[in-house]
Design a binder for these strands. Structure first.
Lengths: 247, 247
DNA sequence: CAGTGGTCTAGACCACACT
DNA sequence: GTGTGGTCTAGACCACTGC
């Protein structure tokens, strides 16, 4: 064997290798949908055995950062060439048939530069007053407005994002973030509550103000646990439900 | 190496081992909180290498069926000796401090034998009219009623469960199921909606009927994907939120 | 100290994809 | 066939636990 690198604080070799691969992903050495070097190549590069590289890749694949394909190679996960339309959205039609209802209709209501309020700044790890992009849109299924969401993006990484870019783009929003801005969302946290809409919200969703709605506040993170998106959604749960699996 | 057993349809050896261990868990060969045989012993028993047993155990540990403890052994997961009070409940106080608010106060409203309605029977894999146990209770945090839940259990496995057993028992309900009835919940699915309470529900939770609530319908499964519990909860989300992590 | 799980290696062979 | 990931083995050594 060989010490792959200096070992300041102890950690298993495969964890160190995992960290090195993660670095390369962050630096963009391999881009989404591309293949990373084979296990043997990486083993030589890092001076460890193939099995050690394997264990590192196993964990990264379990985290959905890499995708293994037997006989072909290991690829950087991507939102762009994906069958599922939505990465994190867990709203399912009551009959469970997502194919019948087809893709959502999207309507951008607003997309403007703002200065971050205190709470937006806090969750995006910015300072109050830093430039942010604010987007508001409605998603409809079968011509029924179902989701009203408002999202904030840090101004720096998303410089140049406009309402046109958003509405012209076919495919998931996270795929656009990836291809156009090099920002890949890796994981997210959601806080869910039941709320009643205010008058503006109820008119945009075309429901009574007495209609209870799911309030879903999502913070999405890129590599390194860096928050890159705050999204506040109101979901109409008359014909859909939020599905969760626990284990 | 050696074929551990006949191999009717092909699958990796470690998957077969995983299945054999799962069987032993179901049959109760090793009970919750007990240690299973060491990796070496299992390797001898199944006539495979230690590494193969290891991979099987790794997956079972990832599924929360087993718990590894270095230097001590591998143990059957249990709800009984657990720090966390709740296995599947993801309702978090707004300030995030679960210790401050302490354990919930529990009040059993009702516990009676019933005949399964059509929809209860369907999710519990019973026939309509089969005996089921119906329990209704309220959980309060800091003297504020927060959760109203109704749950149905199949009558067979839970024969002998009474309101007294439930209210006398200290600790998580799933721990009682485990120790008294040998039923261990392994995973669950939830369907979440926003709703308004009816008049009975609002009075039990001591809220207005106009207060939106989270409706959480949970189906919990034991080994083998056998449904063992249907739980319908109404959560008050004024001072708590439902937390979910996506990846 | 002995026994457990945890890491790491080196090598063999299998399953799959492309050419 | 060649190259990829996937499985399996055997053996060495490390880290932790408890006697």
């Amino acid at each position: 064997m060989a010490g792959a690198l200096n070992t300041p604080a102890f950690s298993p070799l495969y964890q160190q290798i995992k960290g090195l691969i993660l670095n390369s992903l962050q630096q963009g050495e391999w881009k989404p949908s591309e293949a990373i070097p084979s296990e043997m190549e990486l083993a030589v590069r890092f001076r460890v055995s193939q099995g050690t590289v394997r264990k590192a890749i196993d964990e990264l694949a379990a985290d959905n950062l890499l995708v293994r394909r037997q006989g072909k190679g290991t690829f950087v996960a991507t939102h762009a060439e994906q069958q599922v339309q939505y990465r994190f959205l867990k709203l399912i039609p009551d009959d469970g048939d997502t194919k019948r209802e087809g893709p959502a209709q999207r309507r951008i209501i607003d997309c403007k530069r703002q200065r971050a309020t205190a709470d937006v700044a806090r969750t995006l790890a910015l300072r109050t007053g830093d430039p942010v992009l604010q987007v508001q849109r409605v998603l409809s299924f079968a011509d029924t407005p179902t989701i009203l969401e408002e999202l904030w993006l840090p101004g720096g990484p998303f410089k140049g994002l406009t309402a046109e870019r958003l509405s012209d783009y076919r495919g998931p929003m996270y795929a656009l973030f990836e291809t156009e801005f090099g920002v890949r969302m890796v994981r997210a946290e959601e806080k869910i509550r039941a709320v009643l809409p205010d008058s503006l919200q109820s008119s945009l969703l075309k429901v009574e103000q007495s209609t209870p709605l799911l309030s879903v506040e999502r913070t999405a993170y890129t590599y390194n646990d860096t928050p890159m998106e705050l999204r506040r959604g109101l979901y109409l749960t008359d014909t859909h439900y939020y599905r969760n699996e626990l284990s």
